[in-house]
Design a protein around this nucleic acid. Structure first.
Length: 297
DNA sequence: GGGAGAATAT
DNA sequence: TATATTCTCC
């Protein structure tokens, strides 16, 4: 079949110490990059956990308002209908929303940090991250937000704006503030600093691995949530409609979506599983690709 | 044309 | 809100 969305599974065989030094380390991070590789898999450790998330048929079905058989589908796209070019189909079908887990974000930050602000552009970052399935758009979007975050950080740290109301929102802490932010990102002088030498990440090989991720504790699982066929009956309003969720992989940890009500950051070192959110809360019918660690990171 | 970045959409 | 998509510009 066609492999549409796949994400890499990364082993953290080398569970180095470091990792969670964060804020307290921002000022004394002489080694923030010395240990940058720690969180990253060595080339030989890079282990693609590729999975076929959705078949063309399924995609078709889910994309339609009703469970109309593909055969009867008036879909104009030849790629979808004919099972032609796999690559084309893979590009055509929409990927699930990417969830930026702390681990994924860390990779992002590390990449940005080692590229240097000025060289940190989506494509480069993406390549450096070496995460299979990650697109330039994914990175670009995240980068945009990340820059906004850095901007606010600068403001609140270099002026009295912090008192004026430019405080860091809980949302910031949720992801961005949870990881180490290279200090030079925030200080005007270090911005154009020299690029620390580092070993470029080796991109994940595109091989198909139909792993049955049983090895909890050292890999990333991906999660896929698929909405139920557009049954007009079940779909409540944006509220809590009953959806027909199916998990093709073990359920996720409940560490995202803690917005609104109690905006507390996720556990700093969410080493292991927390509780799990009841699936189906939100995301009515949306697919979501989630990378989450199963081991302590 | 392709990519970056901002704006806008979902 | 978080992430995706679109749009403009280079």
């Amino acid at each position: 079949m066609v492999e549409i969305s796949r994400i890499v599974g990364m082993r953290d065989g080398t569970e180095e110490k470091e990792e969670e030094e964060e804020e307290s380390n921002i000022n004394s991070n002489n080694n923030w990059f010395a240990s940058w590789e720690d969180g990253l898999p060595k080339p030989e450790e890079l282990m693609p956990l590729s999975q076929t998330l959705i078949t063309p048929d399924l995609a078709l079905a889910f994309d339609l308002p009703s469970p109309v058989p593909a055969a009867a589908t008036p879909h104009p796209d030849p790629d979808l209908g004919g099972g032609g070019d796999e690559g084309a189909a893979a590009r055509t079908l929409k990927r699930p929303r990417l969830v930026w887990t702390p681990q994924l974000h860390k990779r992002f930050v590390d990449a940005v940090a080692h590229l240097g602000i000025k060289n940190a552009v989506p494509k480069t970052i993406m390549q450096l991250m070496g995460v299979d399935g990650l697109t330039r758009e994914n990175v670009a979007s995240h980068l945009q937000k990340y820059r906004l975050y850095l901007k606010r950080m600068q403001q609140s740290s270099s002026s009295s704006a912090a008192l004026a109301g430019g405080h860091i929102s809980a949302a910031d802490h949720q992801l961005f503030a949870s990881g180490p932010v290279p200090h030079h990102f925030l200080s005007p002088r270090g911005v154009a600093g020299p690029d620390p030498p580092f070993v470029p990440l080796v991109p994940v090989n595109p091989l198909h691995h139909h792993h049955h991720h049983h090895q909890i504790g050292q890999q990333y699982y991906y999660q896929r949530q698929i909405g139920h066929f557009g049954s007009a009956a079940s779909s409540g309003v944006g509220g809590g409609g009953a959806f027909d969720y199916r998990f093709l992989s073990p359920p996720p940890i409940g560490m995202q979506h803690m917005g609104m009500g109690m905006g507390m950051g996720f556990p700093p070192a969410a080493s292991s599983y927390g509780e799990q959110l009841e699936p189906g809360e939100r995301g009515g019918g949306r697919r979501e690709l989630t990378l989450f660690p199963t081991g302590d990171d």
